[in-house]
Design a protein around this nucleic acid. Structure first.
Lengths: 213, 213, 213, 213
DNA sequence: CATGAATGAGGTTTCATTCAT
DNA sequence: TATGAATGAAACCTCATTCAT
């Protein structure tokens, strides 16, 4: 699942131990999945550390050995998921340097939507939980990374120049993420998701071309 | 504040009384404001019915006379705020029929942003609670009303035709709302808000023109 | 039981409400007695807020309405008991002004021992709990009041002068309290308690006469 | 540190191993010191077996190899410290036989205060834990040994006879220990400690002379 | 033997909701 | 009708103790 990430939270909410052994890694993995499952099946308000531990097949005590409190668990899960998505976007941005603008947009949209869909359950589940526990900071941090990659890519697009590239990218990202959120939260059909891809590309190309001098 | 709304909850959680008397209206009003204040000053996790009642200057018992439970209170507050925003959009849509597309876009964007800013505190505060307690359904319902108004308006735009007007409007709305959310949650400066308006218009025009055949 | 005292704790651990009504007063009273009972029957380590509430015949929630946390409950109980004892001592000191030294000592010893015995259960129970939760500060504060009263009384003793009256009184008090503690904790028989009184008077007279120039 | 003591608990909580090897002795030593440190730095309520083990530089498992449970650890630590103090007193009593009463008192007071001060940290730290887990029994047992030694010594004092020597010694001890406790817990300055010594001698001489027929 | 991850009972505290006054 | 004290289920978290490695 995803890449190898140690459980941890931002700021003073440091993880309590790093899983060097296989058993630990499996435990962390199980806790991550359990969090998503509980979130999806029971809802954000029924997401308790006890329930997560139970579904993960470990004791509460074990959960607290990896995360000092519920807050840090949520942040870690959010970070892990978003990191996955943002890395996909960054990768796409690296690969599309010097390509035409339309190619760039297409690549970024597909990478973003693909990554979201790959863990559609997690995507949807976590929407309900970022606004609690200052998840916004984590979101903001990781989104900035992706935007930086995108800005940097766009500067290599042949024949285009953006007067305010940072805000332009910011808007594009916010629009893309916002639209994807609504579509996924609505439990959209594959057909709708296809529509999302098409229109996101349409919107991106139109907006970026328009914003470019 | 806002228009006259009866406190109520979706589904089976009907309001217990209709505020025909002035005192009732004032109480409902006070509870609404108190909810926003508590949300902003204490955070979503410290939003308790007792605290809301205290800040509203009434007893918990009284609060429960107006709302059968916390859930219904939140839904009512969300509905009240969103209704205000969506009505502003609908009004704009009514007024812009038969105008050029760019005028339409501008009017809708300004109406939306104005309405959000008018109660910026409420907008920001409520982002944190919609995901709890199925607020999404309320959001979806009211958003649909606004989208319907917009679709209807767009059909009167001279010289343009949309192949999939519903999805197009859906995307535009999602993008606009998503971008506004990120900007407001970030506590943006007036300068940033100005930027938001400009680029939202830019994005809307570009996308809708592009989506129109 | 004792005098009328509102439940409260030192510092920021203020009581949550003042019992103006009869029911509240009875509740506070019940909680106080329950704390002593649990302490005596179950021991300090089994003193839980749940158990205290249960024995008091109220719900935990009610307990927390009067004391914001376990700590403040303990401090309040300690304060209440010690206040009772120290007030008895102070009263004795007021009454013995200008009496001979031996009369003074006898009065103070009897007042102290009487007060302790009056709530012997509480005295013994609370020994086990002062060292937790910074009860020492409360003890120190109340002890100081009593010592002040005693110093002031001793200054009126005819024909005696103390070079370091404060420390002398401090020593006498510490010795008296220490001895009483050991005797009571040992579950002493009435005979032993009688012995305690006699020897405390003996010790006090001897020491104070010796310490006086 | 102190004399050679095997780790053990009172009653049925016998030690699991006898530290004949140096490593064991060192471990026991480290655990003892760690307990004091944790007690002083974190407080009695944060005294956990895991924390003690960590500070001692061993694993919890190892700690449990030496002490079957937390209770026995505390008892052992208390015993170790008090034994040190009481042995000092006993030694003094042995040396002062047949000396004048005032010499005896002085020697006992100095031995007691010296021993307490030698491990002032331990003295203060342990006050907070004796009342938990029936430490009183250990205290009572060791105190009795010292009192026996003192009674024996007093019987050799020239020219004095006590009608109730046991209770007299009991009182003197309780007073001395009580006063020392208050002074040390208050974090007294060297000046105060000097005062304590002087007045303890004063008090002891006065009381014992008075109690002797 | 030593280690330290895992366990889970149980402690403290909160808060939505009720109902006697 | 308004009040707010009382309720108690349930959440979060700790920590003594065990046992596989």
């Amino acid at each position: 699942m995803y890449s190898h990430m140690t459980p941890h939270a931002a700021g003073s909410l440091e993880a309590r131990k790093t899983p060097v052994q296989t058993r630990s890694t499996a435990t962390v993995e199980a806790i991550f999945e359990a969090t998503i499952q509980v979130l999806l099946r029971e809802g954000a308000d029924r997401l308790t550390t006890t329930r997560v531990a139970a579904r993960a097949g470990v004791s509460v005590g074990t959960l607290y050995q990896y995360y000092p409190n519920k807050h840090s668990l949520l942040l870690a899960v959010i970070e892990r998921h978003l990191n996955h998505v943002m890395e996909a976007v960054e990768r796409a941005c690296m690969e599309q340097r010097h390509q035409p603008l339309s190619t760039m947009v297409d690549a970024v949209v597909q990478a973003f939507v693909d990554a979201k869909l790959e863990r559609r359950d997690a995507s949807v589940a976590l929407y309900a939980v970022v606004s609690e526990s200052g998840g916004e900071a984590v979101v903001a941090r990781l989104a900035k990374k992706a935007r930086t990659a995108m800005s940097s890519m766009l500067k290599t697009a042949p024949g285009v120049h953006f007067s305010d590239i940072d805000f332009t990218v910011f808007m594009f990202f916010a629009a893309m993420a916002g639209a994807a959120r609504v579509v996924l939260e609505a439990g959209a059909s594959p057909k709708m998701v296809e529509n999302l891809r098409t229109h996101l590309v349409l919107l991106g190309e139109a907006y970026l071309n328009n914003a470019a001098k």
